[in-house]
Design a protein around this nucleic acid. Structure first.
Lengths: 162, 162
DNA sequence: TATTGTTATACTCTATAACTATA
DNA sequence: TATAGTTATAGAGTATAACAATA
């Protein structure tokens, strides 16, 4: 349990981190907004998957995911195949062009980070990564009252109407 | 200098931290979007200031800042006094109602953090704060080529047309 | 002529709700 | 009836450019 002051400071740091993300996103190609880059990165890391799985990994609604996927598909960066197990669903998969773009995106991204973080030690970057991962995990767990209603692992999506 | 893999991981963590910010922002009152809360927090922490200074602290364009300030002023959370030193400018100052709201916002924010981070040690929260502050600082410094054109301390704003 | 701030316009990201198609 | 995904609509945040008022 940390002190109140530290929580306030963390809230401030989190709200200010957007500037770093904006700066980083300038390294992206013109036609590839940050969300598209994330889609490609996740399909590369976890392999082919369905919309609902992608939405869960991005922690956004399926409606939003649907638009991001449409964007990258329209540019030929991913393929959509029918899911043999479920006719309502299709499997998303990185295309060859998508792999090429992702390699370029990754290169620019890491170059930008290397430029700005040249005086960071390997250990410090690693520590930051660990703490950020843990922070995300702490917010994924259903600790608070409203989260308790949604069991862990369920998909973030618009609830069916009553 | 850190490894390429770590940079990729950091890029991933940063893109995913938005979910934490969204979850936190649900603790805010209905009429107070995150940006408004930041305005109040900064005026409380640094005292009265001008638009340009606020834009610099938020690392956003003055045009955006102008809209955030208009929002909080319309709700009586800040005052705008003429700047005795410059007729073009006005000084922004937290109002009594703004102080009251900020106290409420801070309480809810820290409560939400305390709920989710109950198993975090004081030291770990402190470490995360330090690393995030350092990350921001690393991106504020004019290291890369395009940043070099804008001297440190200059205001982020739309350049005068040519 | 330069600077401070405002407004108009456009783009990205997100959520809620209503809808289609399939299970 | 329930689930997978799409689309319509709305709201928050941001940037660029054009502008008004003052220095």
């Amino acid at each position: 349990m940390a002190a109140q002051t530290q929580y306030e400071e963390l809230a401030r740091q989190l709200s200010a981190i957007g500037a770093v993300k904006r700066e980083l996103s300038r390294a992206l190609p013109q036609d590839c907004p940050p969300a598209s880059a994330v889609v490609l990165m996740l399909l590369d890391r976890y392999g082919q998957m369905r919309m609902s799985k992608l939405a869960e990994l991005m922690t956004i609604d399926t409606s939003v995911t649907s638009r991001h996927v449409a964007h990258v598909e329209a540019r030929g960066w991913i393929d959509r195949r029918p899911d043999p197990l479920d006719g309502r669903s299709r499997l998303l998969r990185l295309s060859t062009r998508g792999e090429t773009l992702l390699a370029q995106v990754t290169a620019r991204y890491t170059e930008a980070l290397a430029t700005h973080l040249s005086d960071w030690s390997d250990d410090d970057v690693g520590r930051l990564n660990e703490l950020l991962a843990r922070l995300r995990a702490s917010f994924d767990e259903p600790r608070s009252r409203d989260c308790a209603a949604r069991p862990a692992g369920s998909t973030a999506r618009t609830p069916a109407h009553t």
